[in-house]
């Protein structure tokens, strides 16, 4: 049961249903992409999985390696192994990236365990080198005054340090120029492996040129309407989303 299993998930925001019996399974070790037009519920899926209180789960289940995470607090879900890279990461004035990651790691310590600062900094610098992040970055406040590319690299850096079992990347490619996109994709590719399952949420196919997914799912009106291999992304790129809307089951997208 090493997978992220989403079963018949129904999610509402302010009483409006956004996700409708959404089901998807991402096995650990695989990268799945979810594509779809704007307003179809992609970001809602990410926020709901992470336990955001504004996203009301009215039905369904989510299992992380068999552990039910619906109803848990966001921090519990995080420590259970689900990481979310934000489309719009928040700024935390006065809190340095190093201290922030340190606090997040400290929150994961077992009782009796102590934080090992030298090993932490060694690893942090290694990961920063991989992501082509300047050392001076560690003393900057989290996301404060960052460019779009810096924010996304900072997200991937946190992911690399926290080593989640599963990562949901919410529109990580938005606002990135091609160089930044490559750096972020490199980072994700290096973490790719049997210990990580990735759910890549994107509107554009271009990210998938750099992170080649194992599976592609097309989402429309709160559910998945088609699944396939990487070739599905290419079809979307060539033909747009119009055919998806037409192919959607009756009643969807009314």
């Amino acid at each position: 049961m090493s997978n992220l299993e989403i079963k018949n998930l129904n999610v509402s925001i302010n009483g409006t249903q956004i996700l409708k019996d959404f089901s998807l399974t991402v096995p650990k070790g695989e990268v799945h992409a979810i594509m779809g037009p704007n307003g179809t519920g992609k970001s809602t899926l990410a926020k709901a999985l992470a336990g955001h209180e504004d996203y009301e789960i009215t039905g369904g289940e989510v299992f992380l390696d068999g552990e039910q995470i619906v109803g848990k607090e966001p921090d519990e879900i995080s420590r259970a192994g689900l990481f979310m890279a934000f489309q719009y990461p928040s700024e935390i004035p006065g809190v340095t990236i190093a201290n922030f990651i340190r606090a997040a790691l400290t929150a994961r310590l077992e009782e009796g365990e102590t934080f090992k600062a030298p090993a932490f900094y060694k690893e942090l610098y290694e990961k920063m080198d991989l992501l082509k992040i300047d050392r001076s970055f560690t003393s900057r406040s989290v996301n404060e005054g960052f460019s779009g590319g810096e924010k996304k690299r900072c997200e991937i850096l946190q992911m690399a340090m926290l080593k989640p079992g599963y990562a949901v990347l919410d529109e990580t490619d938005s606002g990135l120029d091609i160089d930044a996109l490559k750096v972020v994709a490199d980072g994700v590719n290096q973490m790719r492996g049997p210990e990580l399952g990735v759910l890549l949420i994107t509107h554009y196919q271009r990210l998938l040129n750099y992170i080649v997914p194992d599976k592609v799912h097309v989402m429309f009106d709160g559910r998945i309407v088609q699944s396939g291999g990487p070739e599905l992304a290419e079809k979307l790129e060539a033909e747009g989303y119009d055919w998806v809307k037409e192919a959607a089951p009756a009643g969807a997208g009314a």
Binding site: E73, P74, D75, S78, S90, I92, V95, F100, A103
Partner: peptide
Amino acid sequence: QIFYMMQRGLPEDEAMSLAVNGFVN
């Protein structure tokens, strides 16, 4: 902000504490 910090694994009160410490840092 609090949701962002909690998504990284910090309990709510720790997240709040970190935000406040950042403010006066």
